[in-house]
């Protein structure tokens, strides 16, 4: 017999890990330790140093870099990055969910092929793909030509090098990372439950909101994580499609290394950013765990 706690495979996991589980987890732990923790410690040390003219660190101790991090300029940029990431995530959920659902409910032979079709555009080179977008969005571009033919009154839209262009680029780039995890959850849905709900007289909207959404919530949460988190630190799309006018946190950090030659300050920005993320994420995990304990 199993206890309720063991059955509820939630965030906190099931039974307590024995030595065998630890052994199996060891490769992952070693990987995290060697390639995440150690490099992060290097950055931490650098962030308290000064720099020479090459951007190299000079080993002293200074908190000046962190004082600069608190400059309102950087806080504003940070806020803007979160805003873009949130908006991107929201649009990706809205656009991606129906697609993931459709693929997940397709006949088995079709599913993997549709998934592959979603991913293939991203096997082209990022730069070439982005220049194609520029060709579409520019003033004398494809989109404006179509618009001109359909609704000449609107006039050519000034899209490229605006926040709208950045958002299009972000949604385009991150959409598959929303669709794929949701697909994993949808595929698991038991068709019988949905039909049963229909049979009980529930309308499509009601089936959707009270059956499908709750059952695919883990997939939506995973997709949100995979889109929101990486898009905060993104930098290349702002440069190419936004004209590099509105820097996001990813651009600022990148520039400390590849323009301003100030590694210590770049490291300080990075450390502050990672700590903020880790604390938030860890808090969310704890919150979810508590909720499950209380709910279970």
């Amino acid at each position: 017999m199993t206890t309720g706690a063991e059955r509820r495979g939630g965030a906190g996991g099931g039974r307590r890990a024995g030595w065998r589980a630890w052994v199996l987890l060891a490769p992952l732990l070693a990987w995290l330790l060697l390639f995440i923790v150690v490099p992060a410690l290097v950055l931490l040390v650098y962030s308290f140093c000064e720099r020479d003219e090459l951007g190299r660190v000079v080993y002293t101790f200074t908190a000046e870099n962190y004082q600069r991090v608190l400059d309102p300029v950087y806080l504003r940029i940070f806020g803007r990055s979160i805003g873009y990431a949130a908006l991107t995530t929201l649009i990706c959920v809205g656009v991606g969910f129906p697609v993931a659902y459709y693929i997940g409910r397709s006949p088995e032979g079709l599913r993997d092929r549709l998934l592959l079709l979603i991913m293939v555009p991203f096997w082209t080179s990022f730069l070439i793909r982005t220049y194609a977008w520029i060709t579409i969005l520019k003033q004398e571009g494809l989109l404006n030509a179509v618009l001109q033919a359909l609704a000449p009154a609107l006039g050519p839209l000034d899209l490229l090098y605006t926040p709208a262009a950045v958002l299009i680029g972000l949604v385009y780039g991150y959409l598959p990372f929303m669709i794929l995890p949701i697909y994993g959850s949808v595929e698991k849905l038991d068709g019988a439950i949905i039909e049963a709900a229909h049979d009980l007289g529930a309308g499509p909207l009601r089936v959707f909101s009270s059956v499908i959404i709750p059952l695919t919530l883990p997939g939506i949460a995973a997709g949100t994580l995979l889109v929101f988190v990486p898009s905060i630190a993104m930098f290349a799309i702002t440069d190419l499609m936004g004209g590099a006018r509105v820097p996001l946190i990813g651009n600022v950090i990148q520039n400390q290394f590849l323009q301003a030659r100030d590694w210590p300050f770049g490291a300080a920005l990075g450390v502050a950013f990672l700590v903020l993320f880790a604390v938030t994420y860890w808090g969310l995990l704890r919150f979810r765990e508590r909720g499950e304990e209380a709910g279970g």
């Binding site: 520029i134 520019k138 003033q139 004398e140 490229l160 090098y161």
Partner: peptide, 8 residues
């Protein structure tokens, strides 16, 4: 050159 060529 891209932005100039494109007329933007």
């Amino acid at each position: 050159k891209t932005a100039l060529l494109n007329g933007d």
